[in-house]
């Protein structure tokens, strides 16, 4: 792989991992995520329709020896990035579920407090 190819791949890796790290943070990040999905979908479509040209251009663009190599590299990067995005989203979901459970537990605890004497009731806001 040439130096230019390494730089291009490093940029792809950094943007994928950066995106997965920031995922679900703001609406603009979510928009970038969608643009990525659309971009990869179009790239796939393009590679089917113009398969011969893509097969010829892709290794040149990424400065790798063969087209199959570039496909493999891109697949590894994208799949790892998608996995990281999924992990991140699972963590966010876990946090939300935890919040629901905590809320229920606290409410139940307050219901029990109501059965206690007036002094204890008064100590809670």
């Amino acid at each position: 792989m040439t130096t230019l190819g390494k730089v291009i791949f490093l940029l792809i890796v950094l943007s994928m991992y950066g995106l997965s790290f920031l995922v679900a943070r703001t609406s603009s990040i979510k928009a970038i995520e969608k643009i990525f999905v659309i971009f990869f979908g179009l790239a796939l479509l393009f590679s089917i329709i113009f398969s011969e040209k893509v097969w010829d251009l892709l290794p040149k663009m990424l400065s790798v020896g063969e087209a199959t190599d570039s496909v493999l590299y891109l697949f590894i990067i994208v799949s790892t990035g998608v996995n990281l995005i999924l992990v991140r989203k699972i963590l966010e979901l876990e946090l939300r579920i935890s919040k629901i459970v905590q809320h229920l537990s606290i409410n139940k605890s307050f219901a029990n407090i109501k059965e206690l004497n007036q002094n204890e009731k008064d100590s809670f806001k």
Partner: peptide, 21 residues
């Protein structure tokens, strides 16, 4: 006084529940 989580959330969540109370 006891607060029961419906299922295991982790010690951090338990402490957070306690601090909220």
């Amino acid at each position: 006084q006891i607060v029961q989580h419906l299922f295991n959330l982790g010690q951090g969540a338990a402490i957070e529940t306690g601090l909220e109370l």
